[in-house]
């Protein structure tokens, strides 16, 4: 494998998929964030911590514009990061994945990783808009979230290894094993300790667009990496044979 080409296509596909994620969020998630931060502002006015003045709103609009540009930048950084993990796993598992071309193989892998590393952890610890979340519990919540993702990911890996050792008809047992294990972990791990104090229609709407945004990343990374792999194939090496 050509190492530098492999790294370049993985980083490029991650960055571009992250850009798509960031722009998608800009369009569909930002209205919910603005609404939630609007509630925070009203709470600040009510408590007297801030005054509802023109100066406040000028400063606020400037700050929010900066944060919204950060949404896209963070999308590229996060995409490059998660894309790197995706690239490693794709390269290591490519010959075990179903599908006749690299795009289909990448889509299958992205589906598995979306489910085990994002969606199942999301069901346990769903995304919340601003106004929800106690600053004092942020470290605990971060630890729980990362732990759940790690447990789910390693359980999926373990079940994949197990399935390789089982006969064809028994491979389904590995899937059943993962489902049983992660269900037990789901029940055993503590819930998010914070109460949801924001209106539930805002919270539910935010969670739906959050899932759409993250899903746009996983579809994008699979298609882009698959296409780039088809086009540049880092496993192909040109050799010159000399003979007389």
């Amino acid at each position: 494998m050509r190492t530098s080409l492999f790294i370049i296509i993985v980083l490029a596909s991650g960055a571009f998929a992250g850009l798509i994620h960031g722009v998608t969020n800009l369009v569909i998630v930002e209205p919910y964030l603005d609404q939630a931060i609007g509630i925070e502002n009203q709470n600040l006015f009510a408590s007297g911590e801030e005054e509802d003045t023109l100066e406040f709103w000028i400063e606020y609009e400037g700050y929010r514009s900066w944060q919204k540009s950060g949404q896209v930048l963070a999308g590229v950084i996060l995409g490059t990061s998660i894309g790197s993990l995706f690239g490693i796993v794709f390269a290591l598992s490519k010959y075990s994945l179903p599908g006749r071309n690299n795009v289909k193989k990448a889509l299958v892998l992205a589906g598995i990783m979306w489910l085990t590393l994002y969606f199942i952890p999301f069901l346990k610890y769903p995304a919340n808009p601003p106004t929800v979340g106690d600053t004092d519990t942020v470290v605990l919540r971060a630890m729980l979230y990362v732990l759940f993702i790690a447990v789910s990911g390693f359980a999926a890996l373990g079940c994949y290894k197990l399935s390789k050792k089982l006969e064809n008809k028994k491979k389904i047992m590995a899937l059943v094993g993962y489902a049983a294990f992660i269900s037990a972990v789901f029940v055993v791990m503590p819930n998010n300790p914070d109460k949801v104090s924001a209106p539930m229609d805002l919270v539910d709407g935010f969670r739906i667009v959050s899932v759409i945004g993250v899903s746009s990343f996983w579809v994008s990374i699979a298609v882009i990496l698959g296409l780039l792999w088809n086009r540049f194939d880092p496993e192909k090496i040109a050799k010159t044979n000399s003979h007389s």
């Binding site: 969020n25 900066w66 944060q67 950060g70 949404q71 930048l73 996060l78 995304a127 993250v214």
Partner: peptide, 10 residues
């Protein structure tokens, strides 16, 4: 700077 993506990505 990453505030909005943090919320959006969960």
């Amino acid at each position: 700077l990453t505030h909005d993506m943090r919320h959006a990505a969960g």
